[in-house]
Simulated scan of single mutants.
Amino acid sequence: MVPIADIIVRAADGGSASLAAHAGKVLLIVNTASRCGFTPQYEGLEALHRGYAERGFEVLGFPCNQFGGQEPGDAAQIASFCSLTYDVTFPLFARIDVNGSNADPLFERLKADAPGLLGTKAIKWNFTKFLVDRSGKVRARYAPTSKPQAIRVDIEALL
């Protein structure tokens, strides 16, 4: 299986981005949306990102419009909303699919490595979170209802 650091994703500008730029860090990878009941989690995600960045932690956001059409904007609109509303500084990538035949390879990998309840692989909603250790191993999957601050203990254990 290809290491997570070798996976190529789409950057917000539509180009390619290698996750190798994030190798050796603890990552929290999240499918996000701007018009979701969980959207206020951007605040907590940003707090984690800022609070642990110096220790080698990053949040990576992947906007997704597959759940209730809650991320309809283009990359510029998404970035503007996140910056102006939640002062987001963590990397946001291009809008992607996380389920189905067009699912992004990164999320296919994350789902395979950390299935949900009862072994289900499909992501159920926006703000599903995956915690990845410094070696690229997926260590945990969190439901959209899991608030970012509740993940602090697990992040600290990996730092």
Results as ranks from 00 to 15, higher is better:
I8Q: 15
I78V: 15
G14P: 11
G100V: 12
N126Q: 04
Q149Y: 03
A21C: 02
Q41N: 06
G56P: 04
E71R: 11
D97W: 04
I29V: 15
L158Q: 09
E108K: 15
T128D: 04
S135M: 00
R141H: 12
N126M: 09
L118G: 02
V153S: 15
R141A: 08
V88T: 11
E54G: 15
A53K: 13
S80H: 07
T145C: 00
G24S: 03
R109V: 13
L117R: 14
V26G: 03
F127N: 01
S16T: 13
P63L: 11
L19G: 03
C36F: 05
Y86W: 10
N31A: 07
I7P: 05
A5H: 11
G44M: 08
A157D: 12
E43W: 00
T145K: 13
P63N: 11
A17V: 09
R50W: 01
H22A: 11
A21R: 14
A94H: 09
A75C: 07
T32P: 07
C64G: 08
I8A: 07
D87C: 05
A122H: 11
Q66Y: 03
S83L: 11
I4G: 04
A33D: 02
A114D: 02
Q66N: 07
T39R: 04
I78C: 04
W125P: 02
P40W: 00
I96K: 03
L117S: 12
Q70P: 10
R139L: 04
K137D: 14
G56Q: 04
D133S: 06
S83T: 14
C64L: 10
F90E: 04
T85G: 01
T128H: 12
V132K: 01
G136T: 02
K124N: 01
L110P: 08
T85I: 02
Q70E: 14
S18T: 15
A33H: 02
S83F: 03
E71V: 11
V88S: 04
V132I: 13
N31I: 12
I8R: 13
R50T: 15
S18W: 03
